[in-house]
Each structure stands twice: as structure tokens, then as C-alpha cells.
């Protein structure tokens, strides 16, 4: 399945294994994400998609296998070191800073990236560039108007956007989005994915998504996971035509029907 990986891979996994007790959640996962590609990661509930993101970003340690960012083996690096190298994620369930405003949250992320979050003798207001950059990111995601509100007061859809804003503040090379539109109404999720599609082509994007229509519209390639293993990988058209995928995934009741 690395036939497409002729161009340099931005992120790769090599023989990654992980189990929780007797439950296998990653079984010899070998993935190559070519730079600049928009990948969708799909699979039924409990397939191990979120776990794979946790393994890639260092939130979990694999039992075996290696994670490569570009040519660098990052398997031993802690999560924050991977973020600083440009491997950034968002969360399926919002993980934000409830009492910080959106602007404060994103400014914090910018400060961390620029290495100024350790300075305690200069006021934050002296870091105008950092604040401006954060404000700019919020602007691109239509959050500028609410940027001074505490996060917990934002509408759910806005909080989902803030998840992405926080990730963008880290200037990702590889961006892993865990169901960015989870729980967002259909009309809003289109906007949200339009924002993702509008990201710079320098950023390699992998997103997990259950809604097949969104997957087919926004992904150039699709990876299908089942039971911790990669079932197959291909273009959306190939995946749609694949009998095995149909059997394990598309054959199920479509997600939309459950909504």
C-alpha cells in the first residue's frame, strides 16, 4: 500500500502495534502520508482511529513499531516535542481551556511555538506580534468577533473551530483532525470542511470522518481501518467500489441515518 509513496512521506508508521489488555487496537499499522495530501481515515466505531492518532502524536506509546516524521524517527519523543516539529492534532471531544478567551488560548499556543511562553518578566501585551498572529488565525476561522469571550461561552460549532485554531497556531506540517465536525450540524460542517480544504497545501492533513459525503468531497485519498488494522487504502472512488469496505463499513447503516 506504499505504492503511492513515491513522493517523500510527511508522516509514516512502521509496524505499529498496540493492545489494551487483550484488545488489539493497532495491528502492524503501516501508513505513509505523502506531503500535501488530504487523507481521510475511516472505519467503524472502535476501529482504533483515535488510538492511531494518539500513537502518532505520542499520547500513547506503541508496544512495537516506529513513527517517522519526514525522515526522523520520533517514536521516543514526548508529545510536545512532536508538536514543535510540526505534528499537530485536534480532539474528537473538545479539549479546550474553558475560562480562557479564544484569543488567549490561541495566543498561548503561538507563544509556546515561538518559545516565549516561559518569559514572566514582560507583560503579554508587549507581545503584539503573537497576539496579532493569534487574531489572524481566529479571523480565518470566523472567530474574530467572539475572540474575547471565554471559551465555555462559545457555541459548540465555534468550539470545534477553536480546536482547529489551536492546532494551526502550532504551524503544523502534518495536521491530524479527529472528527473535526463531530456533533456539528450539516450546514456548519460544510463550512468547517471548507476551511480545512482552504488550508495551505504545505500542510499534510489526515482527518477522521464518518460522513461519507464529506470524505468523498474533501479527501484525495482514504485509509480504511478495521479492528486495529489497515484494511485498505485508495482514492475515494476505489474505496467506494471496494467490496470488503462495503461489507465492513459502507454496508452498515450509514451514519447519516443515525443522526
Amino acid at each position: 500500500m506504499s505504492a503511492t509513496a513515491t513522493s517523500a512521506a510527511a508522516l509514516s508508521t512502521r509496524g505499529v502495534n498496540k493492545r489494551f489488555g487483550s484488545l488489539v487496537v493497532a495491528a502492524d499499522v503501516e501508513i505513509d502520508l505523502p506531503a500535501g495530501v488530504r487523507y481521510a481515515l475511516i472505519g467503524p466505531n472502535g476501529a482504533g482511529k483515535t488510538t492511531l492518532i494518539n500513537l502518532m502524536t505520542g499520547m500513547l506509546r506503541p508496544d512495537a513499531g516506529r513513527i517517522l516524521l519526514g525522515d526522523d524517527d520520533i517514536t521516543a519523543l514526548p508529545p510536545q516535542a512532536r508538536v514543535r516539529r510540526g505534528l499537530v492534532r485536534t480532539y474528537q471531544i473538545n479539549s479546550l481551556f474553558p475560562h480562557l478567551s479564544a484569543l488567549e488560548s490561541v495566543t498561548l499556543a503561538v507563544c509556546e511555538r515561538r518559545g516565549v511562553a516561559r518569559t514572566w518578566w514582560r507583560p503579554l501585551t508587549a507581545y503584539r506580534d503573537e497576539v496579532d498572529e493569534a487574531y489572524g488565525i481566529l479571523g480565518t476561522l470566523n472567530l474574530a468577533a467572539v475572540c474575547h469571550r471565554p471559551t465555555r461561552e462559545l457555541a459548540y460549532g465555534q468550539q470545534r473551530l477553536l480546536e482547529i485554531a489551536l492546532a494551526l497556531a502550532a504551524r503544523p506540517k502534518v495536521l491530524l483532525l479527529d472528527e473535526p465536525a463531530a456533533g456539528v450540524p450539516r450546514d456548519e460542517s460544510n463550512d468547517l470542511f471548507a476551511a480545512i480544504a482552504g488550508l495551505s497545501r504545505d500542510i499534510t492533513v489526515l482527518f477522521i470522518e464518518h460522513d461519507m459525503e464529506l470524505v468523498f468531497r474533501f479527501a484525495s485519498r482514504v485509509i480504511v481501518m478495521v479492528g486495529g488494522g489497515v484494511l485498505t487504502e485508495g482514492t475515494p472512488a476505489e474505496i467506494a467500489a471496494d467490496e470488503r469496505v462495503r461489507a465492513v463499513y459502507l454496508g452498515e447503516r450509514p451514519r447519516e441515518a443515525l443522526r
Binding site: 502524536t57 505520542g58 499520547m59 514526548p78 508529545p79 510536545q80 508538536v83 514543535r84 499537530v88 492534532r89 480532539y91 479539549s95 479546550l96 481551556f97 474553558p98 475560562h99 480562557l100 488567549e104 488560548s105 495566543t107 498561548l108 499556543a109 507563544c111 509556546e112 511555538r113 511562553a117 516561559r118 503579554l124 489551536l166 492546532a167 497556531a169 502550532a170
Partner: peptide
């Protein structure tokens, strides 16, 4: 600000590179 981030959601901080 980083301290407030830790108070609000320490688990999230590594994911923004802290």
C-alpha cells in the same frame, strides 16, 4: 497565561507544544 492553561486543561498543553 501558560499557567492558566495548565490550570484549565493541563492534558491539552502538550498538544500545543508546551
Amino acid at each position: 497565561l501558560a499557567l492558566r492553561g495548565i490550570r484549565e486543561n493541563g492534558a491539552r498543553m502538550p498538544a500545543i507544544g508546551a
